[in-house]
Amino acid sequence: MIRDVTLGQYFPGSSFLHRMDPRSKILLMVFYVVTLFLGDTALSYGLLLVTTAAVILLTRISLKFYLRGLKPLLFIMVFTGILNMLYSDGEPLFEFWIFSVSWNGIFSALFMILRIVLMVLIMSVLTYTTSPLLLTGGLERLLHPLTYLRVPVHDFAMMMTIALRFIPTLLEETEKIMNAQKARGADFESGSLVRRAKALIPILIPLFVSAFRRAEELAVAMECRCYEGDRKNRTRFVEYRFTWRDLVGALFCAALLVGVILLNRVIVWNGVGV
């Protein structure tokens, strides 16, 4: 069913991560990804693997949703992995045709895959634990300094919020209209490409009509509540406040960075065939 698409899906909850400030979650996520790319030894990756697993457990969201989020990337991961394996130098383990595979290659491929997996997982943690509204709200506050460069940050954030709010509504509407036309014998599944494109007209027209109607209604409703865009003295209903949770998160990420840098230096066996 159309509604099942998971598009940065949010899972309501009240875990530690759910209750962190969206601004710090966004910043710390960026920080975490950078840290991920700094790691380059088995030890530092071991640490990152453990911490990511710990963070995921903290969200109290079933592991199967994280795995589901990884699925679409399976192909890219395997592809980059193989490329990395074939095109890295080092003492060849075995050779065939024009390729040579070395321990070095295998390790760098594994690291590459691990990097992508961990990155996707940590970004899922952000989108799974933060409602789209908070996410755009947090982004807006973070980008606020750009308003001094005359970037309409508030307007962009409002557009994004509205778009996010209406994606599920529009999907639902599409499904309804499709069903209504199917009830009149419309056929979207068979026939030539041209015929199928034509079959979309009975869906698209009502969809546009209703989207415009909704936009108009929303505009009126917003004006009725005296919305005038970004005004200097505009206060907010929801004030974001940093709490001890955000401090803990920041300390955790800082410690992780230090840990990764230190572990990078400890050359027990860094995979370069020492």
Partner: peptide
């Protein structure tokens, strides 16, 4: 598809499914 013409379903707020240029064409769909 044949079943759907035998079991006609009028959705809630069916006016939102109208799409043709004329009333006649829409009914003929």
């Amino acid at each position: 598809r044949m079943l759907r013409s035998n079991v006609g379903l009028v959705f809630q707020y069916p006016e939102y499914q109208l799409f043709e240029e004329t009333v006649e064409k829409d009914i003929a769909f």
